[in-house]
Design a protein around this nucleic acid. Structure first.
Lengths: 225, 225
DNA sequence: ACAGTAATCCATGGATTTATGGAGGATGCC
DNA sequence: GGCATCCTCCATAAATCCATGGATTACTGT
């Protein structure tokens, strides 16, 4: 009655693992995971943010739910989706890292999306050093709701769409360190371009909130609605 | 000329990530990765070990290769496949872990394959403690070629198919700690059943070579052909 | 109860993927 | 060269996945 004699059960187990792999097998679903890694959202907020038809978004979310990657919470008439755990974010981040390192199509696609030259960067350690020694503003350029859901302690929130109008809120002579969702998020790239065009000293953080959270660094939450 | 205006490039980047996800989206491919995590192998060795048609195995290996997960080495007429890096093994291991934690179909499939009750286990730390204090034999029950490709230092190799015949090679009164490929490998389960049925004190290691290697613990290689 | 909003369910056509046979390269041995 | 071995490439049929529109369910407010 050795388990290895009962063939087919092995395939069932590996197919079950593969079901989780399938959840990662669509660009749209990965975009949704990327958004969810910033905090919970309703279905149509997700659909809009990802540029998806509502029914399509819902279908993808069902797939993610069946893989156990996301959980839901009902609040009145709307349903909020969130990641089922930090390990899911970790898996997502690792997939991107491994893909970039090993798959030849990723670096060019990244360059096309983020720009050939992202300009100078600063690491998390570098950021900490700057904060301790210098006159630094940490700027979060994600949408306000994502900032509220969790941000780097001490960071200022100016969503990138409002940045041109609200640039005066930033002190003239400070170094500005900009961050957004994660390593592959455009927002910080765009923001740094805008700021340097206007003569500010702005630099991008290496990565973003996703990696910050996964490193178990402290996260501040604004509980005001 | 903000990157965010050039829509479609974002989709291209995420589709590129998804291409790596797709490589993880088939049970057969995951079985192949599981085998490759133990060391390099030729195509038809892989096909046989995974119970696949040669052409099917070759096709799956091509997809893995396109995702950059595996690399090849030609030796005369045969081609050896191997994992492209430790990060791939890490991704594979994390996928299984996340799947087990979050996907409801995994635990029953695991139980059906490995047995409802796997009996007692010992962790890596527990193993180290036992080795230091007691009379312990560490037994590797994987196929000989996998043992040769890398094993726990000091471990004895008796492939599980030969175990019934070679049981006398194990000292009568020693505690036996059995391990194989990884957390979801049957071999150690089968071996422990066989050994305890014959009156030996055998216990299973928590996980196996995959996790051992990923923990950066020392690995011995037998370079004899 | 009724209307309205949010999300899921269902059916469908179009695109991908999968397994498998057979043909086609590459390499080594004689 | 001729031949065998190992593997990849190609073509195909079955199965699966994807996006979308229309219907249905779940809940709120009046």
């Amino acid at each position: 009655m050795s388990a290895s004699t009962k063939s087919g059960t092995k395939a069932r187990l590996y197919d079950a693992f593969a079901a989780s792999g399938k959840a990662l097998a669509s660009g749209k679903r990965l975009e949704l995971l990327d958004l969810l890694a910033q905090g919970e959202r309703t279905v149509d907020a997700l659909a809009k943010a990802a540029g998806l038809n509502l029914t399509t978004a819902s279908a993808h979310l069902q797939t993610l739910k069946q893989a156990g990657f996301v959980a839901t919470r009902r609040e009145g008439v709307r349903i909020h989706y969130r990641l089922a755990g930090d390990d899911v974010a970790q898996l997502f981040a690792l997939l991107r890292k491994v893909a970039e390192r090993h798959q030849t199509t990723v670096p060019p696609a990244r360059a096309a999306y983020l720009g050939e030259d992202g300009g100078p960067e600063v690491t998390r350690e570098g950021l900490r050093a700057r904060v301790e020694t210098g006159d630094v503003v940490v700027l979060d350029v994600r949408p306000a709701e994502e900032y509220r859901a969790g941000h780097i302690p001490g960071a200022v929130s100016i969503p990138v769409e409002e940045l041109a109008d609200r640039i005066d809120e930033l002190p003239e002579n400070a170094d500005i360190v900009v961050y957004c969702r994660g390593e592959y998020c455009v927002l910080a790239y765009d923001a740094v371009r805008l700021l340097t065009d206007r003569g500010r000293r702005a630099i991008r953080l290496n990565d973003g909130m996703l990696e910050w959270r996964l490193s178990k660094l402290p996260v501040d939450v604004s509980d005001l609605t």
